[in-house]
Amino acid sequence: MNPAASVIAFTSLSGLGFGLLFWLGLGFPAVTGWVAFVFFALAYLLSVGGLLASTFHLGHPERAFKAFTQWKTSWLSREAWTSVATLLVMAAFGAGLVFAGIALAPIGWLGAALSLLTVFTTSMIYSQLRTVPRWHQPLTPVLFLSLSLSGGALLAGMTSVAPWLLVVAGVIQCLHWWRGDQALASSGTTLATATGLGEIGTVRSFEPPHTGGNYLTREMIYVVGRKHARKLRVIALLLMVFLPAVLLLLPFSHALAALAVISHLTGVITSRWLFFAEAEHVVGLYYGKRT
């Protein structure tokens, strides 16, 4: 799949932002006044910034509000609802902390639950697609949630749990890659089933419909990035998990914490780039671009 910058930015940034909102909703760190304001501002910049980035991906962003209508069937529509609900509930909770210095705990818990639900709905947009076997696995939501929880803990300055959550996310990431590498082969979809000609013999793409590219080949048959996939996986793990975990275990300083956050975000973006670039859509079979 084409790793569009807007979608990578959206899932990476909003994942972190909603992760931070989850911890803030539970009262970690227990902050009020200006300090709370800074934490909430950061969380809203990330989550709202991510959501805005996602609208750059749309052909008609001016009609984006219509995406609220189909919550009964569409995960994208559900995500629109959960994200807005989370932002509203957490705004009420944050206002209590910043302006009145009181924690309206039940509202915070509700906001925390909604934050996780938002990340879950984001992940289901991808995980629901049977056409992309690498995404169509239960580990996809687990991966998105674990990265959001660990990144959020990192941003919340929870130096005691964040390193361990990062390690868990790293393990899930490895499992996701491992399962994903076999996903297309085990999906049962091949050029033989795609054409229905497998009964006759071995099918090979002889000639594509046209000599140039098209929307499908640009959007769904992305092959450039696979060359360095293995190296990029190692880089992603080092930046996303290993380096921030080590930095958090060192004696605390704001500079090291900032470095840990930057490293983690860079790692998540690398991982998310691979999430798209390595994902094979079954339509590639028709174009002879897949085994």
Binding site: K66, A67, L76, T131, E219
Partner: peptide, 12 residues
């Protein structure tokens, strides 16, 4: 249509 492209992703 908002041109999100998700339907094209969903079509095998």
């Amino acid at each position: 249509c908002i041109g999100c492209g998700l339907c094209a992703w969903a079509c095998p």
